[in-house]
Simulated scan of single mutants.
Amino acid sequence: MSAITVGAPAQLSAGAPATAPGTVRVRERVIDKIARETAAKVIGGPRDDVSVEVSEWGGGLAVRVAARLPIPDLDDTEAIRSATPVLERARQIQSALAEELARLTGRPIQRVSFAVTGATVPQRRRVR
């Protein structure tokens, strides 16, 4: 993916000209960083557990995310019963990522592929 050209924002501050000459270029690494941080936030895990690829596709962006999914402690039966099933949660993550990335980048998100690469369980804390 090359540098992305971003159009002018719909609302400008008071006193600014309606159209300013020039272009705005956003480097690929910036979009990748935005996608990685957003994915980690939406998934609810550390950003080190998230891998992201962003490419231009169909007039917008296509995003591939691979991450470990946080799950409840397997000894906590109540938390397991109340947890959302993995496939449903993955679809929720796809939708939330598409909406948030579209808002942050100003570009349409045409596709979000999400691969669950593992699971993370919260660390138990010892009580003294």
Rank of each mutant, 00 (worst) to 15 (best):
E56G: 13
E56N: 14
E56Q: 15
W57L: 12
W57T: 12
G58H: 15
G58A: 12
G58K: 05
G59Y: 03
G59D: 08
G60C: 11
A62D: 07
V63T: 04
V63L: 01
V63A: 05
V63Q: 05
V63P: 09
V63M: 09
R64W: 02
R64Y: 02
R64H: 09
V65I: 03
A66H: 02
A67T: 10
A67F: 10
R68M: 04
P70T: 10
P70R: 08
D73V: 14
D73F: 09
D76H: 11
D76Q: 11
D76T: 07
T77Q: 12
T77G: 04
E78Q: 11
E78I: 10
E78W: 11
E78N: 11
A79H: 11
A79C: 13
R81G: 06
R81W: 06
A83S: 12
A83Y: 15
A83L: 05
T84P: 03
P85L: 10
V86E: 15
L87A: 14
L87C: 02
L87F: 13
E88D: 13
R89F: 09
A90N: 08
A90I: 14
R91Q: 15
Q92L: 09
Q92T: 10
I93Y: 13
Q94T: 12
L97E: 01
L97P: 02
E99M: 05
E99Y: 07
E100R: 13
E100A: 05
L101W: 04
R103T: 06
T105C: 04
T105H: 02
T105V: 03
G106E: 03
G106N: 01
G106P: 02
P108A: 00
P108R: 04
P108H: 00
I109M: 04
R111Q: 06
V112W: 00
V112P: 07
